[in-house]
Computed example of a mutant assay.
Amino acid sequence: MNADKPRPARGRPRTMNAEKVLDVAMNAYWQSDPADVSVNAICQMAEISKPSLYREFGNEDGLKRAVLDSYAEQVLSDVFGIVNSAKGLHETLAALVDFAAADPRMETGCLFYKMRAGKHRLGPETLARVEEIDAVARSAYMALLQAARDAGELPNALSVAAGATYLGEQLALAITQRASGEDPDRIREMMALALSVFIRP
């Protein structure tokens, strides 16, 4: 017997492409309400079996958590890049307005905001990730506004903590309006009005 001959692998070969499944699931959740997209539908779209999906991601919660991780890397990183750019308050706010009103990926809304809005229907892993991202975003907004306060750009009466929450909610509202078909120019106009509270007279 040839001792160098490789032994055949036991069981079925792993043919599932996890990245493809994540892309399929992300698009499905993003285009619709994540709660309305079943595991069966994702398996059908990705042309895989449910046991294969569960072997890779554990359960539906694990899949949604992995999708959110991928979305954070591909999309939310761009938002954090804008906020953390250290380009000054006015330029940063203008870039956030551009993202909400003009980024083509936001035409169907933001997957993170959709998951956050329906977090009572999320599993524990995905919920924990949503809350983690929310906390990181709020910290980034606070750092932006604190830097503006230190530079004398922020109105003295405006609370940095309250302003950070307000900024995040205005961005979420603008993207939600974009997904509902609101005209981008109208969104810019409304955001300019909403964010004028950050402009020192």
Rank of each mutant, 00 (worst) to 15 (best):
R105N: 11
Q177E: 13
R105M: 05
V97P: 07
E19L: 07
S85P: 06
G81P: 07
G58E: 14
A172S: 15
E182C: 13
M115Y: 13
L195D: 02
G109L: 06
M26V: 00
A18S: 15
A179E: 02
V21R: 01
L144C: 12
G109P: 08
A86K: 12
P13L: 03
S32F: 02
A143Q: 12
S180C: 10
A147M: 05
D103Y: 07
L193F: 14
T108S: 11
N2A: 08
G88R: 11
A164Y: 03
A95K: 12
D134R: 12
T176N: 12
T15W: 01
D183G: 03
Y141S: 08
K119H: 15
E107D: 15
G181D: 05
V37Y: 09
M26A: 04
A162I: 13
N84A: 15
A46F: 06
M106Y: 09
A137E: 15
I133E: 05
R129G: 00
T126A: 15
P124E: 12
C110Q: 04
L93F: 00
F198G: 11
R200F: 00
P13D: 02
A179F: 01
L53I: 08
A94G: 06
D103G: 08
V130L: 08
E47F: 00
L173C: 05
A164S: 07
M26E: 08
